Computed example of a mutant assay.
Amino acid sequence: MKTYAIRGTRTKLTGHYRQDGTRITFCNKPVGIPNGDFLGLTGWKMCTRCVKAEQRDRAHAEQVAAQFAEPMPQPIVIIPCGAAKLDHAAPAAELYTGSYHRACRRAADTLTANGGTILILSALHGLVPLDRILAPYDMRMGAAGSVTPDLLRKQARELGVDRATNVTIIAGLSYTAPALAVWPHAATPLAGLPGMGHHLRALAAIAAAEQAPAAETGPDLYAPRGSRNLTTGHLLDDATGRAHCGAELAGPNGAAVLTCAACRHAVEAEAAVEPMAPADREAAEVEAMFAAQLVTEAEATVGTWRGEWIGQAAADGALFTLTPDREQGALFA
């Protein structure tokens, strides 16, 4: 394994391991030049912290790889009910007619196109399979009489999905919160999006599989450490070795269908404030100096406000001289 010196240090005889995808060593110091050529020289040694940390990281990576090598569990997708409904009893898959619910349903259909289960989170009935017959009702999540997290946990056990590891919750905050009480590790692709318009655009993108993995022009997506939920991929921050949202990463996630919203927003924010390159900054400074020079020269030109009016002010300090008007009488006497 390649070893490196610490940047800025005089001695190059201590070998350090670099964390994959970063410029940071396993002992959390900045990476310098490769120093493997010094191996065998008198005084050569390996950083103990780097060796131990690399061994732990490799063991965990092998464990995660073994988990990922197992058959991928079928996804469980939770979507919300809706206020708009048919005026008669119908299967849950048909009962809700609102545009937001239908958008969530289309996204869920995409995520389960190769198998999986869609459950509707009803404010009155809790977790409902698509084929369950329901009569129209009027209940909002969080209102008196609506379902509780304890009831949802019980229903999840009865449905055999309480221990599911591949769960995605496609819903607003009022429905996502109680569902997370059942599956705290679940992916929440709409989390952090500010309003209905952003939700609908994200749902349309999921439904159209625009966020599908293996997009050759898109960035690599990574799996979070300690989770087997591969639905959401995270973006690597090369400076820290973590995801842009702060999560620890285990390795590439080729099964991701969604991109972590927090990672995406962080990357967009960094791009928006990205400093100018030195050459661009120098060109901008030269352009500003040239513009200032043009203004100065223009102000000094005869015929301008500064050159004509102030430049020809009377010696006594008066800005201009008034000629008395005979009709104004004593005003100028």
Rank of each mutant, 00 (worst) to 15 (best):
R163Y: 07
P224M: 15
R58F: 14
A171V: 05
G21C: 00
H234Y: 15
M46L: 15
D325R: 14
A209H: 13
A164S: 05
A93Q: 05
A90V: 01
R106K: 11
T240K: 12
W44P: 05
G246W: 09
A223C: 14
H198Y: 02
G172C: 03
H16T: 12
A284L: 08
W305H: 09
R228S: 12
A279E: 15
L203F: 03
V128G: 00
A298S: 14
E327M: 09
K85L: 07
T188M: 04
A83I: 00
K45C: 06
F320L: 15
D162K: 05
D37H: 15
S99C: 07
M46W: 02
T3F: 06
P149T: 03
E210P: 02
I310M: 14
L230S: 07
V128E: 00
G307L: 01
I133M: 04
A89E: 15
D138N: 15
L249P: 01
I76Q: 05
A247W: 05
I118F: 08
Q55R: 13
T11R: 14
A313P: 04
A243W: 06
H101Q: 06
E54I: 02
I169T: 02
G218H: 08
A266H: 11
A277P: 09
Q63L: 15
E216F: 06
R18S: 08
L230N: 02
C81W: 01
P80A: 00
A5D: 03
T148V: 02
W309S: 10
M46C: 00
S174W: 05
K12Q: 00
C81M: 08
P136M: 04
G8T: 02
T232A: 08
E216S: 13
A284W: 01
E54D: 06
E210D: 10
R102G: 00
A83V: 05
A93K: 04
T148M: 03
A333M: 11
E299F: 11
P34W: 03
A298D: 13
V147H: 03
P178Q: 01
C81S: 00
L173E: 14
E285F: 13
L151Y: 10
A284R: 03
R58G: 12
A261P: 13
K12L: 01
Q155R: 03
A288Y: 11
Q55N: 11
T22M: 08
R7Y: 10
L124V: 04
R242N: 13
G197T: 14
C47K: 04
G218R: 06
R228T: 13
G172S: 02
A187D: 10
P219S: 11
L235P: 00
G115H: 09
A171S: 12
A107S: 10
G195I: 07
L249C: 12
A191C: 11
W309F: 15
V167Y: 07
L180C: 08
D109E: 15
A103Y: 01
A315Q: 13
G160A: 07
T304I: 03
A277C: 09
T231I: 01
